[in-house]
Design a protein around this nucleic acid. Structure first.
Lengths: 242, 242
DNA sequence: ATGGCCGATATTGTATACATGATCGTGAGG
DNA sequence: CCTCACGATCATGTATACAATATCGGCCAT
């Protein structure tokens, strides 16, 4: 998906920094000081700054006034807005695909993914790992379906935020009662989305994609309601401040 | 709107590069070589690279494989998609503003802008300069109306592309017959948009904002149809390759 | 007591030399 | 004639020293 970082100092700094940020080692709002960071990573400031610049491009860092970088901090409202935005953009991808038409072969690939997702429900218990991977592939395919580089790029940007990714808030396995029902509901939407696009029903496709993103918001709400005070919510929410 | 570059080497390089790119001196697809560029600008490669990195963030440059930067090239299809995307995002801003509600005072500021835009039509001839400036202000206000930092940021990003800005394809003054009629139509949509948001009519507000962006596409089509072969189309299209 | 000035120090900005790697032409071998 | 390998050249990647500036504390004047 995202271009693989090269095996050089900048690439290593990029990976290491991203890991620390997403892992919560560097919480939202933390200022990144170049000299200590560079020493700790055993590289010079130059590739470190290049890596920070790229992370700013990704939206994980922001530039501080007076120079330097901060780990970007998000509120719960931001998370909600990012999910909403993903829904809007995926809805647009779905609508444009329906309106403009999609080559038979690419539509078939989406159908294959949908069928494979169906397959996750065959066993006695849902294959969660496989569902999650296929879900990501389905959304990646959707992203490129209308063949718009501009739109695909913005969607990619949005999904880079850890809490806006389609797999960020899949239903919580701890909620056993609702777990399979919720996944089945999401999968029904996948099927309906494919059907609407194939039938060139743009408005329907858009509406379904938007509603589909709302599942993430619902699962987010569930996480927050069941929050143990002080306990971490979810890896996807490392950058979120209360 | 965009943060003012600082008065340092990086800031100067940023301004100079942006100017050359938007001015068409560096056409889409041009590779930027650091050494000659730095020499020409009388700065070292370090701040030049920092500036290029920021322009990549803006979407004006892209990273080349194997390192370095290219001036990003756009097709006419990209321009159409970017306008569509702006419509979608402005539509979302309008819808969320309507759904979530807007503080009275901010709505009043939008009303003032709308009234001032009306004022451009009072004289014998439309005050085009003033209309253009107020139009930009109206869209900037809309962008921040729902109070969503996430959405505002993406809209800002999209509008940074010169051909996706709300003022990029205002009707061409050379088409005298349609000129005032087209501006008046756009202004009617501004008024309707304000009205819909004030009345909390989210779906209507979204539809109006989308249709409003379509005016830009219409004017773009008009430009392309009347294109003199070989002649430059519009400053906004400097990065577009046929 | 408070406001603003000033300077010490911490931090980023810049230049530059050198290292690494990408690109492309050239030649030998198939 | 084509392909692949090699190496020269050129562009970017990296380290580091030095410059400029932001920040913050204390001090002075009001």
């Amino acid at each position: 998906m995202a271009a693989q970082p090269k095996d050089n100092q900048e690439g290593r700094a990029l990976i290491a920094l991203r890991e620390r940020i997403l892992g919560g080692v560097l919480p939202g709002g933390t200022r990144l000081f170049e000299v200590p960071l560079a020493e700790e990573m055993r590289i010079s400031r130059t590739p470190l700054r290049a890596a920070m610049s790229r992370l700013a491009e990704e939206g994980l860092l922001e530039r501080a006034r007076g120079g330097g970088f901060l780990v970007r901090a998000f509120t719960v409202a931001d998370v909600i807005d990012a999910i909403e935005l993903r829904g809007v953009l995926e809805g647009t991808a779905a609508r444009l695909a329906a309106e403009r038409g999609v080559p038979e072969e690419r539509l078939a690939r989406l159908a294959v993914l949908t069928a494979e997702l169906d397959g996750c429900f065959q066993g006695a218990t849902v294959d969660f790992e496989r569902y999650s991977a296929l879900n990501g592939a389905f959304h990646a395919a959707l992203q490129h379906l209308p063949g718009s580089e501009i739109l695909a790029r913005e969607l990619e940007r949005t999904k880079t935020l850890p809490f806006a990714s389609p797999s960020a808030f899949l239903p919580d396995e701890t909620a056993h009662a609702d777990f399979e029902r919720s996944l089945a509901h999401a999968q029904a939407q996948h099927r309906a989305l494919h059907e609407a696009i194939a039938a060139r029903e743009g408005a329907r496709a858009e509406a379904i994609a938007r509603e589909h993103a709302r599942l993430a918001r619902r699962n987010l709400d569930h996480l927050i309601r069941n929050k143990a005070p002080g306990a971490p919510l979810s890896p996807a929410l490392a950058l979120v401040i209360d």
